[in-house]
């Protein structure tokens, strides 16, 4: 689609959507939000980008193949549970890094798991959207 308005607005819109999706991803740690919702928002951003600039631009923006993004996500989610092996807990036991002097609660295995979910959703939805678009 070659509308001037769309092409002008899209860079701003897409970067906002991606930033917002990352915000939602980390917000999901203690409040409504999370990897799945965040991933969907980011994937919608990519879809908007695809409408404005075509599928080739989206492939360039993702750098690696979308299924590869999903693969990294699956790896992150599956391996985040394996970390528990080193402290003697069962698979997927949540581990937190809670330093004494800084109030930081997001360096933890559930967050890695959620980032994995985020990447999986972004990758697979982008793959589906690209596939549909490139058939035409």
């Amino acid at each position: 689609m070659s509308s001037l308005i769309l092409r002008t607005a899209v860079p701003l819109l897409v970067s906002l959507m991606v930033v917002f999706s990352i915000f939602v991803l980390f917000r999901g740690h203690n409040l409504p939000g999370g990897g799945f919702v965040g991933g969907l928002i980011a994937a919608s951003g990519l879809a908007v980008y695809m409408i404005a600039s075509g599928p080739a631009a989206v492939r360039r923006a993702l750098i690696i193949h979308p299924i590869g993004v999903a693969g990294i996500g699956i790896l992150a989610a599956a391996l985040s549970g394996v970390l528990a092996l080193f402290v003697g807990g069962p698979y997927l036991t949540g581990l937190w890094w809670l330093p004494d002097n800084i109030d930081i609660k997001i360096v933890a295995t559930p967050v890695i798991f959620d980032i994995g979910v985020y990447l999986t959703v972004v990758g697979s939805v982008a793959a589906i959207a690209l596939e549909l678009e490139e058939w035409r």
Binding site: F36, S124, V125, I128, E131, L132, W135
Partner: peptide, 24 residues
């Protein structure tokens, strides 16, 4: 339900694409 929605979303997308391909 959230889990089921996620799963059915993925499968529905797949079946939709499959139907489209089969129609072609």
């Amino acid at each position: 339900i959230l889990t089921a929605i996620v799963i059915s979303f993925a499968l529905f997308a797949f079946v939709l694409i499959l139907t489209y391909r089969a129609y072609q």
